[in-house]
């Protein structure tokens, strides 16, 4: 059993990890080519295509849209929980989508960017294992259809029915493909250098401290990332930048044995496993 396997098991999860040095390509892989449920991690792909369309002049980042309060997508943060209509620029919606994983912001952007366009971009990058099947609203409807309730289920029998937990039937990727996409953003290859810089800034504004960032508790280490959460699914992909210039793209996807919503050990192992992998890359 590898030390990563032991870390994941102790936290009560199955883990899938890929870590790569953004500049040298040195890598650590643990089930890195298995298809995984992205949950909200797919928002990184949406972000990339959003900025590429801005680069091409197809979208205006500063265009203001009004999101009606009665047309929200379900979600625990951002515009999704606001009481009133919101008028906001497209790029600030992108900020809310990355900072707090706002589902309404993401779906509003998908309305402008288009799911086929996101998948075409992924294909053109050679990311054949990454696919955006549906937006947040459709994912939510699929859950409600499967379990007959709007609350996220914790009953193991209900969770076993969820189609959104089957990578073949929902937004999916692999750890290796997600670090590839992140590496392209950090090397200015995913879009124009200005757009890549804007994406790096937004990924660095994510507020959650409990997963990837928890593994690197240092003032002089930067952690940028995007989480993904569904019943039994806890993910985060991101880039860790060390004070000596080393930068590492890390993707950690987990599935927990337990079905409780709050599992701090499962959140924390994303950080500790990422840390262990980065330490090995720096050896």
């Amino acid at each position: 059993m590898t030390d990563l396997e032991a870390l994941f098991r102790t936290a009560g999860v199955t883990g899938f990890l890929h870590a790569v040095d953004v500049d040298t390509g040195a890598e650590i892989a643990h089930r890195a080519d298995d298809p995984v449920v992205t949950a909200s991690v797919f928002k990184v792909a949406l972000l990339v295509e959003f900025f590429r369309q801005i680069d091409r002049g197809r979208l205006d980042a500063t265009e203001r849209v009004t999101v009606m309060a009665d047309r929200h997508t379900a979600g625990p943060t951002g515009v999704s929980v606001m009481a009133d209509d919101v008028t906001i620029s497209l790029r600030d919606l992108a900020y809310l989508m990355m900072a707090v994983s706002d589902n309404t912001a993401a779906d509003t952007l998908i309305g402008r960017v288009g799911l086929p366009e996101i998948n075409a971009m992924l294909a053109s990058f050679g990311l054949a294992g990454t696919w955006v099947e549906h937006d947040c609203r459709d994912m939510f409807s699929s859950i409600v259809e499967d379990v007959g309730q709007e609350e996220m289920p914790t009953d193991p029998a209900l969770i076993a029915r969820l189609r959104v937990l089957d990578p073949a039937r929902t937004n999916r990727s692999t750890p290796r493909e997600m670090t590839r996409l992140l590496g392209m953003i950090w090397r200015d290859e995913a879009a124009s250098p200005a757009s890549c810089a804007a994406m790096r800034r937004l990924l660095g504004l994510q507020v959650w401290p409990h997963r990837l960032a928890a593994g690197f508790p240092y003032d002089d280490v930067a952690v940028s990332g995007k989480t993904g959460t569904l019943p039994t699914v806890r993910n985060e992909v991101g880039v860790v930048e060390y004070p000596d210039g080393g930068r590492y793209a890390v993707a950690v996807f987990t599935r927990s044995y337990g079905t409780a919503q709050n599992q701090p050990r499962a959140d924390a192992v994303i950080g500790t496993a990422a840390r262990a992998a980065v330490e090995r890359l720096r050896d």
Partner: peptide, 12 residues
């Protein structure tokens, strides 16, 4: 009752 929290909610 499950008391939901933003950080572990739907698609957080």
């Amino acid at each position: 009752r499950v008391r939901t929290r933003p950080a572990s909610g739907f698609l957080a």
